[in-house]
Amino acid sequence: MTTEAMPLFEVFIRSKRGLDHRHVGSLHAQDHRQALEYARDTYTRRGEGVSIWVVASRDIVASQESDSASFYDPLDDKPYRHATFYKLPDAVDNM
């Protein structure tokens, strides 16, 4: 199998319980249509999916770790966005 013939696709599944698509892995397929079929066969055998996205891996653009200082840090001084910021009594601390 040449990389040309069967490019790599990344697979994202939204399960019944969740609201967001989660990345679950990748596979090789000839085109998007076949990628969807293979994703269904590989990643939803246990009823894990109501929605499948497949994206050609080459189309994914990612940020670099080295971007963090300017890219992420300004967000990091707002700890009230994190659940751990809030102290609750033990009896209700299961959220």
Binding site: T2, E4, A5, Q30, D31, H32, R33
Partner: peptide, 20 residues
Amino acid sequence: VRETLAAYRAKHSARSAEHA
């Protein structure tokens, strides 16, 4: 079989884009 996919893809890349 794998080579078939390459050949089909080459012939039909325009049509694949429509289906995508």
